[in-house]
Amino acid sequence: MTVPLLKVDNLAVEFGPKSHPIRVVDGVSFEIPPGGAVGIVGESGSGKSITSLSILRLISEPPGRIVQGRIEFNGVNLLDLPRSKMPDIRGRDIAMIFQEPMSSLNPVMKIGDQIGEAIMLHEDMSGEVRRRRVIEMLGLVGIPDPAGRLDSYPHQFSGGMRQRVMIAMALACNPKLLIADEPTTALDVTIQAQVLDLIHKLRRTLNTAVLLISHDLGVIADVCERVVVMYAGRVVEEADVRSIFRAPQHPYTRGLLQSIPRLDDDRDRLYQIPGSVPLAGSVKKGCPFYERCSLRIDKCAEEMPPMFSFGTDQRAACWVTARQADAQAKEATLS
């Protein structure tokens, strides 16, 4: 077992007044190995974005605050560091790209200068060296004529190109971990394919670890090796990507996979999960999926299930499927 690059352990984030807080992230744990690619998948209010923002401590306090847990990066708990040390980590060790490539770039600054600034913050190099590095980065992310585009402004780029610039900026200091929060959601399908392809290529060449946040299981399946499924602020299932898609163990993961319309699918009707996604922090007791679950038993309403292991590399928080798996295992040993 290698030492994980990032280890999030029992993280909880609350919002609102201390007297009646809303817990939007509760007991989230996962690990990313060096060079690995982990995806967090979830719908609105699942807490996936808050989790990713917590890692860089980018949650605005107040109203939010991290109330428990550890976030270990290379063995150092980031939550123990003084706030003033965080800017050194951001960008240099851990970089982040966001959904909206337009609003994340400064509209009145040339993109060459913006990327150069990102480098200047963390690395000491002369103007000429820096310039060459910026050109190299732009070329790496597939911007045609990188030297000629240094003096362009963000509005002169299309959405897909801007996301490439964002990626170039994020990777300029060679971070060990790239957090990508819905990086392709604002893009068209054909452009999304280009950006995903770029992420693949960069992982191969730079060996950067990736934490990909998305609501789209297709994007997750494409990029990631491990998947964390979140629902209403909790991790409900975690496994390697094959197990998640071939043998999901949590009823929510199963429902989600079946309800996605697919191209190669001749079903006449889509499977549907009833009900709607609960508001963050609205579920106080028991399993957050209880209301919508087809497998629910009384116990689910009372007690939040812990993460049960299924096989060597898969864990899911469900009383019922854990019991079923147990029974199957016993049967197998008997016969």
Binding site: V189, T190, Q192, A193, L196, D197, H200, D216, L217, G218, V219, I220, A221, D222, V241, R242, F245, L257, I260, R262, L263, D264
Partner: peptide, 14 residues
């Protein structure tokens, strides 16, 4: 357009 849509299927990766 069909080929670009990411399918929830790890076998199709890339």
């Amino acid at each position: 357009l069909m080929s670009a849509a990411p399918e929830p299927d790890p076998e199709r990766k890339g």
